[in-house]
Design a protein around this nucleic acid. Structure first.
Length: 407
RNA sequence: GGUGGGGUUCCCGAGUGGUCAAAGGGAACAGACUGUAAAUCUGUCGGCGGACGCCUUCGGAGGUUCAAAUCCUCCCCCCACCA
């Protein structure tokens, strides 16, 4: 494959490559020497729930791996103690080594849905920060000035807004930067908000007389609310662990105006094809169709083609045709007759009886499609029936004895 | 160390003795509508009891009062300025 073709793959859906010429040089050299490039990406093992926004750079790493390069995932067991200042809030409680390890393992489990394990290295920061002494730390700190770091938006904004900013947080870019030295990184991947940290890695490598890494910055994936970046704390994310139907539904809930954005960054559709979709949307085609296509693609990316198709059918069944889902959990109930409010709470469909009452008042409760609004209703469970709350909560109620007869 | 300003329900944020389960916004949930779990509109949004009642909540612990998120004491945490 020519360098131009490789660059086309690498730069698809990438916002910025700093500096681009040097990446081309590195690629050429690697091709000549047969020595793979080392592609770095760091994670903080503070949790393990990965969402598809995290995977934008990870999918990029996979593309590098497919081109013969080596992915290096850094488990940030030291930076995790700081918490990325680019995130909004407060300091985090330190994790134990066991928690870090457990989180890292679950994290990797999800990343391997995308990455090739044979071409991926996993490294812990503690490998190099563990043995490091205070004098070395001071030396590293001495290479940078406070003004440099305060020029960074996230530090400055927090400072100016009068929010707490710990001394250790300022160390974050220094640690992340040193990682690049430790693993001799050629390219570091990250979202655009990581620009400062990744560039600090270049500075650090220069200080240590290493060739500087390339910063390859991916756009930040918008959350399902279409307003803020996808993040767990804002609860606008699609998790890798979400079951297919859930992923599908969440995609369907994004605002229409970010459909193309998602096609670009959350799928691997060819650019030409995305342009086609854009044209149709401009021509006034019902965005529902594009959005369903998008949802199907995203589900397929993680669960396979068939799962995408199934999710699609299921969605149409439940929401367009208002039928019941194929798979409904059973609840075996031995009490009959039973008060409707009690039934709603013991099945877990409502969290409290207050909520159950609200649902009843709001005409949200049906039994086999018939609305129940009487709070005092007593329900006879002679035959199985479908209890539904709102649009999405279903439960099949089975009388205990019925169930025994069947089995 | 000094001075001043803060810590409120999932989040932001109003509230300075009773009319406060606590304004407003966001999130979430429900209904209508629709093309979708989009948008829009309406409603709900601590818990328990069939509303009126009761219980729990306003950084923590005590106290004053018939009555406290609101006043007092001590403590913990955050911010700014001065050193």
């Amino acid at each position: 494959m020519t360098i131009e073709q490789q660059m086309k793959i690498i730069s698809r859906g990438v916002e910025e490559i700093i500096p681009e010429e040097d990446l081309i040089k590195k690629l050429k050299r690697s091709e000549k020497t047969g020595k793979p490039l080392r592609i770095k990406y760091g994670i903080d093992p503070t949790g393990y729930d990965v969402h598809i926004g995290h995977l934008v750079p990870i999918r990029k790493m996979r593309e590098f791996e497919d081109l013969g390069h080596t992915g290096v995932i850094i488990i940030g067991d030291y930076t995790a103690q700081i918490g990325d200042p680019t995130g909004r809030d407060d300091s985090r409680p330190p994790l134990t080594a066991d928690q870090v390890k457990a989180n890292a393992e679950r994290y990797m489990e999800q990343l391997y849905m995308v990455l090739d394990p044979a071409k991926t290295e996993v490294r812990y920061q503690s490998e190099w920060f563990g043995p490091m002494g205070m004098s070395e730390v001071l030396k590293l700190m001495g290479k940078f000035t406070l003004a440099q770091f305060m020029a960074h938006d996230t530090f400055r904004k927090r400072y100016e807004a009068g929010l707490p900013l710990g001394m250790h947080e300022i160390m974050y870019p220094i640690l992340q930067g040193f990682d690049s030295v430790a693993i001799q990184s050629d390219v570091e991947l990250g979202a655009t908000e990581q620009k400062f940290n990744i560039l600090t890695g270049r500075d650090m490598q220069r200080i240590f007389n290493q060739e500087e890494q390339i910063a390859l910055l991916s756009p930040i994936l918008m959350g399902t609310d279409g307003k803020e970046k996808m993040s767990k704390s804002l609860n606008n994310y699609i998790a890798v662990f979400d079951p297919p139907q859930e992923k599908y539904g969440k995609v369907m809930s994004i605002p229409d105006n970010i459909i193309i954005n998602y096609f670009n960054y959350a799928t691997r559709l060819a650019i030409e094809e995305i342009e086609e979709i854009q044209k149709k949307l401009n021509a006034g085609e019902n965005p529902k169709f594009s959005k369903q296509r998008l949802a199907r693609e995203i589900v397929a990316l993680y669960h396979g083609e068939q799962a995408g198709i199934d999710a699609d059918e299921e969605f149409n069944r439940i929401f367009s045709q208002k039928e019941i889902p194929t798979d409904i959990p059973d609840y075996r109930c031995s009490e009959s007759p039973i008060k409707i409010i009690k039934l709603l709470t013991i099945t877990g469909l409502c969290q409290s009886s207050s909520e159950a009452k609200r649902m009843l008042q709001q005409n949200a409760v049906t039994i086999d499609g018939e609305k129940i609004s009487d709070m005092e209703a007593m329900i006879d469970i002679k035959q199985d029936f479908i209890l539904k709350v709102g649009k999405r909560r279903f439960m099949r109620i089975v009388h205990e004895t019925n169930n025994l007869q069947k089995s």
